[in-house]
Amino acid sequence: MTKLNSKYADSGYIQKLILRSLLFLLLGIFAVYYLMPLFIMVTTSLKSLEEIRTGSLIDLPREVTFTAWKTAWSGACTGIQCEGLRPFFWNSVLLAVPAVFISTLIGALNGYVIAQWRFKGANLIFSLMLFGCFIPFQVVLLPMARVLGIINLAGSISGLVFVHVIYGIGFTTLFFRNYYVSIPVELVKAAKIDGANFFRIFISIFLPLSLPIIVVTVIWQFTQIWNDFLFGVSFSEAGTQPVTVALNNIVNSTTGVKEYNVDMAAAIIAALPTLLVYVVAGKYFIRGLTAGSVKG
């Protein structure tokens, strides 16, 4: 009897072992699938053009060279200009930093009002803002191009900041509203009785509580704005283009030989800031993604 039992347990154990190995094999295959493009980008960027032409896609570089990186950063042509990605990288920084800051601040104040100072119509306003998150931006491109021209911001980085703030408000408001709505309204009531006013309550009570949602919002906005291409390509001109537009121009530049290693190095450079944010603060990144999609 005992012998039979142990035999039974053994076959169960083996079956479990096989299933587990299969599971890890599958997970491993998918990990390779997701990592392969990044691996190919990195190795290609470290090869010489000669090696790219003679070697195979997934070969490791025989001789590691950083010339492609140097060209991508400061020498590649984005049209008639051949200054590499560097100036455009800084354009993106100059664009993203104020746009993220302003839209987060506005979102925090809006969320605070909608969640804690409810008044008639506030929910309607919130719904209108929420819907604004979903519109395909093509529907506002034409009038926005005209308005930017009228207010003299056409082709400027300030104009892009303006556009990103306007169309970021919906999401930032959503994030803060959903966060503040779980804070009991009694807190505001008690503070009011103690004589604190609207801004005082916001600054001394709500802001200190908000660190997690500020991190989520800043990461979300930064990723959105850094990775944006549509607004960048529609509303910028030669000197003010963000990095994504410049990258696309480098890759599609028709002058000279096709330098795949430079393309890949440029793509990695353009991706580095958001990748870095993801690696450092992945938890908050995921929270923003899911909060941005699962409303409420």
Binding site: F30, A31, Y34, P37, L38, I40, M41, T223, W226, N227, D228, F229, T244, L247, N248, V251, D263, M264, A266, A267, I268, A270, A271, T274, L275, V277, Y278, V279, G282, F285, I286, L289
Partner: peptide
Amino acid sequence: YLYPMALSLIVTGTA
């Protein structure tokens, strides 16, 4: 599995 979501679609397209 999730890191591609942090990339710009321009980067993804280029790769």
